[in-house]
Amino acid sequence: MPDSAPPLPLLAAQGLTFSRNDRPVFGPLDFSVDAGEALLVRGGNGAGKTTLLRVLAGLLRADAGSVEIDGRPARTALRAQAMAYLGHLPGLKADLTALENLRFLVGLHGLRRGQLVEQALGIVGLAGYEDAALRELSAGQKKRLSLARLWLSPAALWLLDEPYANLDLDGIELVNRMVQAQLRSGGAALVTTHGAYAAPPVRTRELVLAGGNGDDLAEATA
C-alpha cells in the first residue's frame, strides 16, 4: 500500500508581502505552522510583527501572497472560525464586568468544549473579580481577562501579539501553560516577541523579521 500523505499544516503562507505608504514592511514570506507546534515571530520594534499577525487575522490586506488554513484558502468565515487573535488592546468593553465581557464574547465566538466561563476566570487568577467592571481592573488584570477570553475560544490557531506584556512572573507562566495546553489539544500558536521574554517551553520554530530589506525570514527548529 502506498504511504499516506503527510498531514497538511494548520496554517501556511506563501509569498506573503505587505507595504505601507509604498514602503515594504515584510515579505515575501513563506512559512507554515503544524498542529501541535508554535511559531515564534521575532524582530525589533517596527519589524512588522504586529502587522503580520493582523494580516493573518484578516484585519489588514496583504499586497501579495496567500494564506491557507488546513489546505483551504483563508476566507473571512474560515479565519473567524479557526483563529483567535490576542492583540495589544484588550478587545473588551469598559462598561461590562469581567464575567459579562466573557459571556458576550463567548456568544460571538463560541465556547471551547468542556469549559465554563466562570472557571476561566479562576484559571487566569481573576476569581473574585466576576462583578468588577473592566475600568476598575489594572493593566495586568485586563491582560489576564483577555487570556481568559482566549482560553474559552474553540479556535485551533492562536495569534498572540506580545502575550507576556503587562504580566508578572506568574502571568508569564500562565501564558506558557496555556500555550502548552493548546498544543497538546492539537492546536497551534504564533507568538510575537522582541526578545525581552522567554519563548514558551514547547515545540517551537522561529520566523525572524528583519524588516523590508529582502532578508525577512530565518526559520529554525528548536
Rank of each mutant, 00 (worst) to 15 (best):
L39F: 02
P28S: 05
T193N: 12
K142A: 13
T17D: 06
S19D: 10
N21C: 06
L111C: 05
L99N: 00
G48F: 05
Q119Y: 02
R205N: 08
H109F: 13
L10W: 01
L160A: 06
F26I: 11
A77K: 13
S19K: 04
Q141D: 12
A84C: 15
I172Q: 13
V117F: 07
P24H: 05
D22H: 11
R149N: 05
A148F: 07
L190Q: 08
L207D: 04
G140M: 14
P163D: 05
L217Q: 15
V124W: 02
T192D: 04
T51I: 14
Q81N: 05
R75P: 00
I172C: 14
A210L: 09
L190C: 11
P24M: 07
A64T: 02
L217V: 13
D70Y: 03
T97D: 06
F104I: 07
G71P: 04
E206A: 10
T50W: 09
L111Q: 14
R184F: 05
L78H: 07
R177Q: 14
R20H: 12
V117K: 11
G48E: 07
A155I: 01
A155M: 05
A181Y: 04
L160Q: 03
W151G: 00
P201K: 05
L207F: 06
A220Q: 13
T221H: 11
I123H: 12
E37C: 09
G65H: 06
G212Q: 02
S4T: 11
A98F: 00
L11W: 00
L150D: 00
S32A: 15
R184N: 09
G44P: 06
Q14D: 11
L217D: 08
G15R: 00
A222V: 14
A64P: 03
K49R: 10
D34T: 12
A199G: 09
F104K: 08
E219N: 09
T97E: 02
L137S: 08
G87I: 03
A80Q: 14
A13W: 00
R203C: 08
G214D: 08
Q14V: 02
F104G: 10
Q81A: 15
T17E: 09
T17N: 00
S138P: 09
R103H: 14
L147S: 03
A12P: 00
D168Y: 02
T193R: 02
M1W: 07
P6F: 06
V208H: 11
L11G: 10
G125W: 10
T193V: 05
L10Y: 01
E219L: 13
I123P: 01
A94L: 13
